[in-house]
Design a protein around this nucleic acid. Sequence first.
DNA 1: CTGAAAGCGCTTACAG
DNA 2: CTGAAAGCGCTTACAG
Lengths: 344, 344
Amino acid sequence: MVTQTDGETSHQPTVKEVAALAGVSPMTASRTIAGGTNVRPELQDRVLEAVRALGYRRNENARRMRAGEPSGLVGVAITNLGNPYYGNFALGVEEIAATHGRRIVLGNTAEDTQRERRLIADLIGRQVEGLILVPTGQEAAHLQHGLGDTPLVLASRTVPGVDVDTVVLDDVGGAYRGTRVLLDGGHRRIAFLGNVTSVFTGRRRYAGFTRALAEFDLVPDATLVKRDQQDVETARRAMSDLLDLADAPTAIFCANNRNTIGALKEIGARIRASNPASGLPAIVSFDDFELAEMMPVPVTVVDHDPRELGREAARLLFTRLAGDRFAGPPRHVELPTRIRVARP
Amino acid sequence: MVTQTDGETSHQPTVKEVAALAGVSPMTASRTIAGGTNVRPELQDRVLEAVRALGYRRNENARRMRAGEPSGLVGVAITNLGNPYYGNFALGVEEIAATHGRRIVLGNTAEDTQRERRLIADLIGRQVEGLILVPTGQEAAHLQHGLGDTPLVLASRTVPGVDVDTVVLDDVGGAYRGTRVLLDGGHRRIAFLGNVTSVFTGRRRYAGFTRALAEFDLVPDATLVKRDQQDVETARRAMSDLLDLADAPTAIFCANNRNTIGALKEIGARIRASNPASGLPAIVSFDDFELAEMMPVPVTVVDHDPRELGREAARLLFTRLAGDRFAGPPRHVELPTRIRVARP
DNA sequence: CTGAAAGCGCTTACAG
DNA sequence: CTGAAAGCGCTTACAG
């Protein structure tokens, strides 16, 4: 039974103290702790006993500094820890990092460039060997300068002027094919629910949307394009406005998970109020979500694998770290998306 | 435009190199970098210019070591990064840590005691000031020894024999009240879908379930109790077995999010197959989930706030760190749950 | 205002 | 096999 009331003073013991207690030199203690090569078994026993008695834990930072070894850490900065998409992204990074004996240090930027800047500075200061970033915005200054020789990989989004290794989704192609499902199904009044234009993926998905429309000689109807929703509640309200239009859309392209959920919640509310305005629209959702097949309207999902995105970002980083880290031009990987009709 | 092809050699510059380039002593460089007190402006300019030229970044590990300062890091170990519940938990920890000027280092144990052990050792070795852990199992050995003087807080689950600060949910009360909703609604054949008995929360929620039944002079029917599902697919199959019973349950208590989703997916599959066996059961879900109100059966949610769980864990830790860290007995906090009927 | 010396905790390289 | 010396990158404390 361990308790936190044993009255010991707060202090992490050092090799010196271990050595003193064992009656050996710090070097003998250090050698024993490192694995015990070239130390008499008898002395090893005494050292290990002292380690136990003092609760000694080697200071990894000090060790790596003297040994000239890298930190063994990879920094990962994501925009929203509470979003399972980025959680799985981080899992993918961790998976590959583990195979290289590295641990990840994870930070959350909360879509705030200021926080991103501070986080990166801190991670670099703590000697991460490389940095994987889902960038918050389009500001490049803090990414161009101050990273020193620490390799940077951008994931999911790019930043203009920052020409480093990147892995993104096939946003344009995915949005195009998702929209085509609606067009091929006969829909012509198709609305777009997306997030702010400043976000890389938002712009790309809108581009895929318009490309599909163009093939049917259509251009987006401004009254059907809503591009400012960052969360579920604003998405729900945007959806409500669309459904209240005299000439309401027959289908909705939702450019991300948050917009999909908001749109569906509004549909649900109207069903429960027995007030489905006009007929209920079909939905395309860029991003998968759980229980898609339980929805009262047909949902087409533009699916992709966040974990693979993380894996690929890590692979790019470790390739960089393995070779001459400035050799070769930056590589740009685009991962595919899959169309899945949740409820035909 | 920054590229990774500029041919520089890989090497983080040091104060010494900055000082040499600026033509001053390392101390003058150090003082300037630290903020510039007691350094002639002219020298400061030269140092800062050298910093820019070399892309110098202070080694935070080295600085803190010499200065005798703590690392400024709090270790957080969760069981599943891909679960938004724990992502939000980590956000809560981060929120409080930020107000104390600390950063979190997040690790994932993947419900694996071996990984938990290694992760903790590593975090301690990297000098975290404290550790917040969602423990994987019931093994206590690595938690009793080897943490040294680093305070530990257990969150969501406890470990027998490890008597440290803890914050858990009111699992028993929440499960009790959720089950009461079903009983008060007239249900008498109520099934239990939960996870393995070895998990703390699983046991507690089952206890709340049986307590509610007892008030109606009922005992759990063994054929209606399924307690081995760790993921959605196994939960779905367990649900299928229940619905296929000759005397199928009229209501299901789902002890966690994964079991709820699995149960609902099976219900959805049967509706789509126009084969709702007998009537569809009511659902109680311990853990909230998105779009609960869109389900084709009544869903009662035993809701709680993972972020607040994280905040509270961090508060316990910082209280410990602020005072004499071994003063006072361990504190045990239990956070409330709220009953929410998603669709009456 | 400036810098040479010493040391944070650890280990490499060198001498026994 | 063992240890005194030196140094990783940085800063405190001490002398000018």
